[in-house]
Amino acid sequence: MKKVSIVFSLLIFVLTAFVSVSQLFVVPKGWPKQGYDFSRNPLSNEKIALGRALFYDPVLSKNNTISCASCHNPYNAFAHADHQLSHGIEDKIGKRNAPALVNLAWQKKFMWDGAINHLDMQSLFPITHPDEMGEQLDQVISKLKGATIYPKLFYKAYQDSVITGEHLLKAIAQFMLTLVSSNSKYDSVMRHQAVFSNQEKNGYQLFKKNCNSCHTEPLFTNHEFENNGLPINKILKDFGRMKVTGLVTDSLKFKVPTLRNIQYSSPYMHDGRFARLQDVLKHYTLSIQKSATLSQKLQQPIVLTSNERVDIIAFLLTLTDNSFISNPNFNYPKYNLYP
């Protein structure tokens, strides 16, 4: 009898552990399995909390002025409003538009050109880039060691107050992995809990016909790199993915971004050249520039009337997830970082 109860309680223990882990990251119904390998970085509330503290802490930058959230603000769907290009320490301006951070567990390559191969390694780029946070990783660690709160937070997360690069990067990745947006009006419609207006419905049909091959549902990206016919900016001279692969066939290709929460993630494109969604729609219908690497999916012109463009925008606004934007778990941590 005793044996049975021991086995039973063990089973319960294992089951509850499993449930609590899965509650920290749930694949929304009907979505593909995420690409991120959680077995190498199992989520825990303590690690997520540590990652969240780091994400909002300007201590990661050289002069302690810029945090991840400076350019990835929750109120802008973790993008940066009003800045076409990223804005770093000492008012330095980078070369690309800070993208919205959302549903990153499904993404396998990071940055507009895919230069970063794993979410764990992503934060190294902005931390060390001279035009972004301009700091050295070992400097960050020595600052964190001297801070009041971090040895405690690292201990809570890893049962080890020694701060390592691995733990730092994995904790930031954990917080970013929790940034899942799957509760927009579009999602409610797909779950038969809401209905589109006629205009949204028409926009959705037009979207499926003209946009869905790259901005594929339900993540609204095919995770590929495409040349979407933007003329090159003569000052930035940014050839995109070609810099990473060295292949001329990758010239002018950039990552297809998700359209989720696009209402809040203005400005648009890798260099933030378009401020409004109507400018984006105008580009796709009127000013695609032909070149050797232009996306196969844009070889035929997209023909839309101005009313149809408005309908598509009405549909795009159904991708706004207010529960994501205002999720208290994603915002600046309530506890004081420096009491």
Binding site: D37, N41, N117, L137, G165, E166, H167, L169
Partner: peptide
């Protein structure tokens, strides 16, 4: 491509 690792492979 396996993400962050520690010890001799730590990015620091």
């Amino acid at each position: 491509v396996a993400g962050a690792m520690g010890g001799d492979l730590d990015p620091t």
